[in-house]
């Protein structure tokens, strides 16, 4: 099913991209936005969507993508995106929704439902015809007993017709039991008796598109390193599987292996030398460089240009 996109893909660069904040995670649901962010801003995120009825299939995931706070911060600071507190905005939008807007939306839902029902009916008819043709029987007229599949379809659509004017968020009346109708009261197969129910999968519309906010996400102290590497055209992804904070790819991660295992430290932060040994060993073991970096304080900087991040790459010598 196609829904109107909140932002048209060709005009993405003119618009601020909304990033949904749901349960403390930054999510992007729109595939066009995801593609745009990856191609234009070198931000890939992590695919997190699973299949609802197959949650154990967790190797190949789909949309939405989840973004690291650092990625969101970078996008917000660059003026590319803004954060939407999805829950709050949703509640607010629902409260302020006018009656005529609501009705218009319901109307479109119903129209789409009718279209879908027609398609389904057509499909069912073709299927039964094909099945009969295979068995060498002639096509029954509408007065004759319909096939079991068609009956089921009929009952199903009758059931749906009663609930048609409900939607997910306007629970006006409890669902009524389907009226007992026999298969003989069936109409012509091309004209469905009732529309299918359409479950809306987007909030905007019907709700108005969220307004840009100036919310800045909190980031870990390693953010300067992230921004620094990103400014050097590296693609960065979370590096948990390699025991680091960021994996730095020289290009799109689909094309390249990563070059660095990056870990950010505060300038005066104390860390154990053992961590350096372990990181260096691990990096060299997987043919990458172990890279640490931090933001030099303003007053200690020798050259006052650039972003002031110093990075060091460590390799295990194995003397």
């Amino acid at each position: 099913m196609t829904h109107p996109k909140p932002v048209a893909p060709d005009r993405l660069s003119d618009h601020l991209i909304p990033i949904s904040l749901v349960g403390g995670r930054y999510l992007v649901f729109d595939i066009d936005v995801i593609t745009y962010l990856r191609a234009q801003h070198h931000i890939c995120g992590v695919l997190t969507g699973s299949i609802p009825h197959l949650p154990q299939q967790n190797v190949f995931l789909g949309i939405p993508i989840e973004l690291m706070p650092e990625e969101v911060r970078l996008l917000v600071e660059k003026g590319v995106a803004f954060i939407v507190d999805d829950v709050a905005w949703h509640r607010k939008g629902l409260k302020e929704l006018r009656d005529e807007d609501k009705n218009a939306f319901l109307q479109t839902l119903e129209t789409r439902g009718w279209d879908a029902a027609k398609v389904a009916e057509q499909w069912a008819k073709e299927r039964s015809e094909n099945a009969l043709k295979k068995q060498g029987m002639k096509i029954p007229t509408s007065a004759e007993t319909s096939s079991p599949a068609a009956t089921q379809e009929e009952v199903g659509s009758a059931n749906k017709s009663d609930n048609a004017d409900e939607s997910l968020f306007f629970n006006s009346s409890p669902p009524q039991p389907p009226s007992p109708r026999g298969p003989f009261h069936r109409r012509a197969p091309t004209t469905p008796s009732s529309p299918h129910i359409i479950t809306p999968t987007t909030s905007y519309p019907p709700l108005p598109s969220p307004q840009p906010t100036s919310l800045l996400p909190p980031v870990p102290p390693s953010y300067p390193l992230y921004a620094h590497l990103h400014s050097k055209n590296y693609f960065l992804s979370p590096g948990l599987r390699f025991g680091c904070q960021y994996l730095a790819y020289p290009g799109d991660p689909l094309r390249f292996h990563s070059h660095f295992l990056a870990v950010g430290f505060g300038w005066d932060e104390e860390f154990s030398l053992l961590d350096l040994v372990a990181g260096g060993r691990l990096g060299t073991g997987v043919k990458k460089g172990f890279l640490i970096g931090g933001l030099e304080p303003e007053n200690e900087r020798e050259v006052r240009e650039g972003d002031g991040v110093k990075t060091f790459c460590i390799e295990w010598g194995g003397m």
Binding site: F242, G243, D275, G279, R281, L282, G285
Partner: peptide, 14 residues
């Protein structure tokens, strides 16, 4: 941190 644990653990598994 988690990355620290993963780092140390991966080195040992190597």
């Amino acid at each position: 941190s988690w990355w620290w644990l993963h780092c140390v653990n991966r080195v040992q598994s190597q």
